[in-house]
Design a protein around this nucleic acid. Structure first.
Length: 271
DNA sequence: ACTTCGACCTGTTGGC
DNA sequence: TGCCAACAGGTCGAAG
């Protein structure tokens, strides 16, 4: 599930339930995530209140009184807020209980996710310090992309998926944005004009915002006792549609594997 | 300095 | 139906 819109939806879903709440108990059933959850985490979180919940790229940051809890959902992670004790399932690795008796549960079958804690300034953390601009901020614009791409040869798809450049554009939204902007995924960043970068930036922002709006319609589901997320499937133009007709020109969509990621595009509409 | 590639995991899917 | 390989929405860090 987790591309930026899903992470943003998760943030909006959990925030109202845990903001201001004091942590009363932490249960770690499986510490073996992408980085092992430190054994000290349970003690460190205990009795701290949540001051704010923020997002940086695809990282969720629970700002506590003395430090910050960093959460990444990886490929298959999920956070749910449960209002009563709910029997943990196979992949429910962490529970954080609050004074209001709600439980924030971290579920992640593939365990590519992460849950860490730091008492240093969180934006200086090694996982955050190198991150590029937020795609929905004003800093993400055509000039920025054009400037950042000088002297580089990478393909435009690899480029916009590079978190040092811009955060939160994953494989699905990269493919969709490039289709919308009519740019071939495999062309080099050095060949793209400022004007086309402007079109691409607009497409990325539009698609991410639309996806956030759609995810936002299911926020009530966060309180479902079974913890199922129930996201609407976002209507996708190219992702997962290789060989099927292009929705703009009817030509069969092409498939390409670049940097080990599947890409679908239309070689008639995109150039 | 830039770019590619392997690694981390488990669940699902599709071909034989 | 069963088995097995390939693949999946991420991203770090080593190697080239």
């Amino acid at each position: 599930m987790p591309e930026l819109p899903e992470v943003e939806t998760t943030l909006r879903g959990i925030k109202p339930h845990i903001i201001g709440q004091r942590i009363t108990r932490v249960i770690v059933r499986n510490a073996r995530l992408r980085w092992p959850i430190p054994a000290s985490l349970q003690t460190q979180l205990l009795k701290q209140a949540v001051q704010s919940v923020e997002r940086r790229g695809k990282y969720l940051l629970l700002q506590l009184e003395r430090g910050t809890c960093l959460i990444h959902l990886g490929m298959s992670g999920r956070l749910s807020v449960l209002n009563q004790r709910c029997v943990p399932q196979k992949h429910d690795h962490v529970d954080i209980y609050f004074a209001n008796h709600l439980c924030l549960r971290f579920t992640d079958p593939r365990r590519f996710g992460a849950l860490l804690y730091t008492e240093k300034p969180v934006h200086e953390h090694r996982l955050l310090s190198h991150l590029g601009v937020e795609p929905l901020s004003a800093s993400f614009n055509a000039d920025y992309l054009w400037q950042s791409s000088r002297g580089k040869k990478v393909s435009i798809k690899t480029f916009i998926m590079n978190s040092k450049i811009v955060v939160g554009v994953g494989n699905i939204y990269a493919a969709e944005s490039l289709f919308q902007a009519r740019i071939l995924p495999q062309i080099s960043v050095s060949t793209i004009s400022l004007e086309r970068y402007a079109i691409l930036v607009t497409a990325i922002k539009k698609i991410l915002k639309k996806a956030i709006t759609k995810g936002g319609t299911t926020l009530k589901d966060f309180m479902r006792s079974d913890g199922s997320p129930g996201y609407f499937r976002i209507s996708l133009q190219v992702y997962g549609r290789a060989g099927k007709p292009c929705l703009r020109c009817d030509a069969p969509l092409k498939f390409l594997r670049s940097a080990q990621r599947a890409t679908v595009y239309c070689d008639h509409c995109q150039f």
